[in-house]
Amino acid sequence: MTATTTEPIEPVDPHSSTNHESAQSELGRGWARFKRNKLAFGSLIFMGVLIVVALGAPWLAPMSYTEQDLTGRLLAPLTDGHLLGTDQLGRDVFSRMLYSLRTALMIGFAAELVALLVALVIGLWAGWRGGRTESLLMSFTDVMYAFPTYLFSVLLVVIMGRTVFAIILAIGIAGWVTQARLVRAQVLKIKNFEYVEAARSIGTGGVAITVRHILPNAVGPLLVTTSFAIPGAIIAESGLALLGLGVAPPTPSWGGMIVDGYTYVLAHPHLIAAPLALFSLTVLAFTWIGDGLRDAFDSSEEDSA
C-alpha cells in the first residue's frame, strides 16, 4: 500500500500529447532530472530505509514498546541495554520511537490515500460536469476554508474515537478540499484540449474520457501535491497526539512521546529531543522528495483556481 504512492513512476506532463512514446520519454527525462537532484534522491533512499524500518519494527525494535518496568523509570541513555533510556513508565524509548515511525507512516499514507480518492472523485466530477455540481463544490470548499483543518480533524476524532481508522479518516476527510480544487482546475484545462474533443467526437462517453484521457494527464501536478500532503498528514497525526487526541495509548506516536516527555524536559531532555529529531528528518525527507518531483516534472503552469 505504501511504496506505490510515492515512487515517481507515472507522472505525465499534461502538455505532452496522448502519444504514448513521447509521454514515456518525458517520464524518463523527468526521472533523470530527479536523480540528478542529490538532496531529493538522497531523501528518496532515506525514505526507503524509513519504510523498511517501519515495516520491520517488530523485528528491529530491541524491546517491547508496551512493557513497563516501574523500577527502571526515566533511565538515562545507554543504561541496562536501553539505547535511549526509558520513559516515565519504564518503557524503552528507542523501541517506542521506531513504532511511532510505523504509526506515523501508516497514518500518513493511508490518510492521504483517503483524501486523494475523495478529491479525485469530486474534482473530476465537478470539473467535467460543471454547472450546478461545480458551484456546489466551490461553495462547499469556501465553507471548508473557514474551518482550519486541524479543527475539523479534532471534531471528527471527538466523534469517531481515538482508533487508527478514525484518525486516518479524520485527517483524510479534513484534507481533501485543496486537492479537489486542483483536480478540478486540471480537468477544466485539459477538457478543452483537442484530443478530448476528438475522443468526444467519436462518441466516447464522459466517464471513459475522464478516466482514460483526463486523469492520466492530470497525474503530474497531483503527484507533486500528494508528495507534499503526506508529510502534512504525518504532522497532523503528531499534532492530534500532542493534543491528547491521537491514537489511543499504548500505541506510540511522536506527538504523544513529546507531550509525555515534556513534563520531564528539564531533567531528561532526550525524551523529547530523540523523537523530535526522527520526526523532523522524516518530514523533511518527504518534503525534499516533493521539491525534487516538482522541479523534475515541472508542470505547474500557473493553474491554481
Binding site: 476554508y145 483543518t149 485543496t178 507533486v224 501535491t225 507534499f228 518534503t287 505547474s300 500557473e302
Partner: peptide
Amino acid sequence: GLLPASQLVDSRTQGGRDD
C-alpha cells in the same frame, strides 16, 4: 486563504519562477 503554508506558497509562487 487557509491553505497550509507549503501549498499556499506553491500555488502562488511556483509558476516556474521561484523554485
